[in-house]
Design a protein around this nucleic acid. Structure first.
Lengths: 227, 227
DNA sequence: CGGGGGCTTGAGGCCACTCAACGATAGTGG
DNA sequence: CCACTATCGTTGAGTGGCCTCAAGCCCCCG
């Protein structure tokens, strides 16, 4: 327990290209794109929030740390997801690229200006914040009251919904990431997955253990619990 | 003797009357008041959200249940707090009065109409949702990664900030409520409090064990962890 | 190719849970 | 007003689920 997680210092984004996009009748929102190598930090907790981000390809984890290194991942952001949207001026999580990742950036101020004049945009900011809140609320139930098997089953079902692939689920994150998302240790996650494998609920495909085929979603769902 | 360390109280969230009345010439949002006996339900999860609520006096718990009865309390709402604000049309928690409680009600639709025409109101809806999100994010860290002592210490410090009393902290909720808020059992909560009592960090006052005086906030804070 | 990180598996330990008993208090009804 | 009961809280004893520590294999990846 209490092992400090070491992370790379944030390097410059590998690429940054300016794009200008006019969104219908709205004024132009300045957009650019940026890529991050796996494991690199995108922004740190308590930094001023200059941008809002949208994942183009790859995956991002956002987390909080305790002073002794214990880590809680609050969410994974996958292709298409928007993250880094803060109402106050500062980020409340640290975010890192889980794998090589490209994101689109939107200047926060330009977004807020747009929201001020455009009720539709303002409403969509609220609805995005509400989605994040809803996810966090469900995750509190998971963290506080579910067993390790239930947590892992719920995680697999969540990823099954959110990852694009049709037959095969390619998890971008490590066992440690999963563990820190679920409030477990990586060994417990590994054992739970092995157990599900023994039961024939899932199959490992590639050489890495991150490619999974769900053989029986019904039985998997039984390892989780209905609300 | 013991010199009381004064700490800043958390500013109250925007009050409903501010919202309703701030919109100047707009129709006043319809307000009414209602009281609930201790232990009674205010609304249930998945019910249509007809009202938004503000606690006048008393305390409210909002929680989710698993099918086998395990309960996770997501938040306590104390005097002045607003709850039941959902962006979608349905409540995501069940709420109950922890003690006899009076609340002010505001029709959801009238609030939303006001928000549509009034950017100030719309912004305050967003900022309330963001506060809820921020609380949930911090609570995920607590639930996933803190030990029982750290959880209980964090709980006491939170209540110390939020409860009005100056010298004595009168907790409205039971040990079981606290446990279900912290992802523990009531016995573990009780043992942690006893331990803090033995250490001289806190004192029990009344006949009930819910009236507590914090003798040493500094040492209490050491039982929790800095971020 | 060589080193290191990722994953699995086993053995053992510990923290929080379970089960239980008990006293105190609040709520209920006669 | 007083039993009567249910609820609340504390404490102890014992268990167990998850954590810790460790070893070994495989696969990247530099």
């Amino acid at each position: 327990m209490f092992v400090r997680i070491t992370t790379d210092r944030r390097p410059r984004p590998d690429s940054l290209s300016e794009i200008g996009i006019a969104s219908g009748s709205n004024p132009i929102v300045s957009l650019s794109e940026s890529t991050y190598r796996r494991g690199t930090e995108i922004y740190g907790e308590k930094e001023p929030a200059r941008y809002v981000y949208q994942v183009t390809t790859g995956a991002v984890r956002s987390y909080k740390l305790l002073s002794d290194g214990r880590r809680q991942i609050g969410a994974f952001h996958l292709s298409g997801d928007i993250f880094g949207l803060e109402n106050g001026g500062f980020h409340r999580f640290t975010t890192e690229a889980v794998v090589d990742t490209t994101v689109r950036l939107i200047r926060r101020e330009s977004l807020e200006q747009t929201a001020n004049g455009d009720a539709v945009v303002a409403r969509s900011l609220l609805s995005m914040t509400t989605s994040n809140l809803e996810h966090a609320e469900n995750h509190m139930l998971l963290l506080g009251r579910k067993t390790s098997m239930e947590k892992v089953a719920a995680f697999l079902l969540e990823m099954d919904k959110r990852l694009p692939a049709v037959g095969i689920m390619a998890l971008p994150m490590s066992r440690r990431d999963i563990a820190d998302y679920l409030g477990l240790t990586l060994e417990t996650v590994s054992r739970a997955l092995s157990h599900l494998h023994e039961q024939g609920v899932l199959e490992f495909i590639g050489k890495t253990q991150r490619e999974i085929v769900l053989r029986d979603r019904v039985r998997l769902a039984e390892f989780d619990l209905p609300a």
